[in-house]
Amino acid sequence: MKIKVDFSGGAELLFGNQKHHEVDLPVKDKPWLLGDLLFWLKDNLLQDRPELFLQDNSVRPGILVLVNEIDWELMDTINYEIQLNDSILFISTLHGG
């Protein structure tokens, strides 16, 4: 299943410093949940320091997750069922000024 995964605000540094990824998720029996994607990304795309991406089965504090530009809190977070062509965005919040 093809989806788009984007990283910004520095989260891309954990993923080979690449902001945009075209991802093709392997076929599986059950639907792909957003929670599954987190671990798939950790095992397949993450290049460095998993603790800076995941904590306790979710993203670490300071990272916002957006599904098609909508906060995942409005989409049932890790239980959201991923659809073909979805765009998932991980934003690390910035603090500089």
Binding site: S8, G9, G10, P61, G62, T93, L94, H95, G96
Partner: peptide, 29 residues
Amino acid sequence: SALQLEGQLTVYNYQGGPCYRCLFPVPPP
């Protein structure tokens, strides 16, 4: 906020909208 080539902007605590802690209850490592 801004860093390198990216910036972020929002308004918190306005007319029933979320506050910073609604979004980030736990500070980042």
